[in-house]
């Protein structure tokens, strides 16, 4: 067991689409499980990385304080950190809010919007505080590899992981590079 590669995954400011795509490798996941064991991941609901992971897959960019803490934990506990999908790599759709001020966004959502009662911007300490902008992961921590796509196709994820685990250059062949 100990020779298996430990893989941790998380979804920050993303839609879980990349994780869906990961599961989309279908029956190959059985092959994959011969090679890897999942550390912290929404797939197994482990909340923190146990020990060190060999590979961390990050879905989504950084839009709040919690995202940052998770990303930091991954950087500190993963030997190889991978930005997976458009949101992690570029900020993606969530970063469309970067063209407005945070004030405008929150006031539109919680004060000026239609049908709002008891209008106020939520300030419960349980709610992660939003960053002024949505940031791609590589602007926050060092990222070792990028796996593009929205989401990356199951084939791309399969190719990437198997090549990486085999100790080869996991760069995608042209036909597997997609941004949509």
């Amino acid at each position: 067991m100990s020779k298996k590669v430990s893989v941790a995954t998380c979804s920050l400011a993303g839609c879980f689409g990349c994780h869906m795509s990961l599961l989309d490798i279908d029956e190959r996941i059985l092959d994959l499980l011969q090679l890897v064991e999942f550390n912290r991941s929404p797939i197994n609901d482990i909340k923190h990385i146990e020990g060190m992971a060999d590979v961390g897959l990050i879905e989504g960019g950084v839009c709040n304080a919690e995202n940052f803490h998770v990303l930091k934990e991954f950087r500190e506990h993963c030997k190889i950190l991978v930005s997976m999908g458009e949101c992690a790599i570029t900020g993606g759709i969530p970063s469309m809010r970067n063209h407005f001020t945070l004030k405008d966004c929150l006031e539109e959502g919680y004060i000026r919007g239609v049908g709002i009662e008891n209008a106020h911007i939520p300030n419960d300490p349980e709610i992660p505080l939003l960053t002024d902008k949505v940031y791609p992961c590589h602007e926050v921590v060092k990222i070792d590899y990028f796996l593009p796509g929205c989401p990356p196709s199951a084939d791309a994820i399969w190719h990437f992981l198997t090549e990486l685990i085999a100790g080869r250059d996991p760069s995608l062949p042209t036909e597997l590079i997609k941004y949509d």
């Binding site: 970063s95 902008k133 791609p136 590589h138 602007e139 796996l147 995608l172 042209t174 590079i177 997609k178």
Partner: peptide, 15 residues
């Protein structure tokens, strides 16, 4: 970008 194997934007986004 596909053709030239670009897998990330590398630089900070200027937004």
């Amino acid at each position: 970008a596909y053709d030239l194997g670009m897998q990330d934007n590398h630089f900070p986004q200027l937004f």
